[in-house]
Amino acid sequence: MRMLLQFAKTDTVRHLGLLDLQRTMQRALRRSGLPVRYSSGFNPHIVMSFASALSTGVPGDAELLDVALEAQEGALTEAECLARMNAVLPPTLPAERVRLVDDRFPKLGAALAQAAYSVELAGGDAARIAGAVPDYLAQSQIMALRKSKTRETLVDIRPMIHDLTAKTAGEDARLTMRVSFVEAATLKPELLLSSLCTFAGAEMPVCRIRRTGLLGVAADGRAVPLIDL
């Protein structure tokens, strides 16, 4: 059996790196008393994986951890698992939901198709950027320079943008976006933002990115939270 754990990486601890988060989750799982599975070898560790690593400095509202359990179906309830995890996690990393799934359930990383973000823009050109969104989306093609470790490639990012809305509040603005998140075509929110700024003829403002969701695509083509897939 596997436990899919949805948790939040709150603002206070947004700077946690993947390794820090891994260690913390391992220790929390050890304390939880849940029947976790250990790897073999000299340095046994709990078999678990994150659906996606979240960058240092970025908080997440609905991150996902996949934990292998040594338990028969029915031996545990989801509510019990959630309660046990919240009893051992620090308040800065609250568990939000648990879903128990069969071992054959697809790997989260493989099912992951999209990610949702919100980006807070503070002052400066924020309003102008927000106002440019409808025209920006009306383009049939949006070419942007995607950088990888080894090279830069010019790609059309328009098909990777599934949803983009903007809201202004005084001098500030908030962008809400849902973008592709698969190995061949991942659109980073920073890249979308810089492309949007160029389009709007605006300076890149001070911004705060948070990941609000990880999604998969259901059989009917709808994007749904990964944990509900």
């Binding site: 709150t10 206070t12 601890v13 700077h15 946690l16 790196g17 820090d20 913390t24 220790r27 929390a28 400095g57 051992v88 996690l89 620090p90 308040p91 800065t92």
Partner: peptide
């Protein structure tokens, strides 16, 4: 290393 100043640890 922001984690040096972050706080919010387990058992604090």
């Amino acid at each position: 290393k922001p984690a040096r100043y972050m706080g919010g640890e387990m058992n604090a």
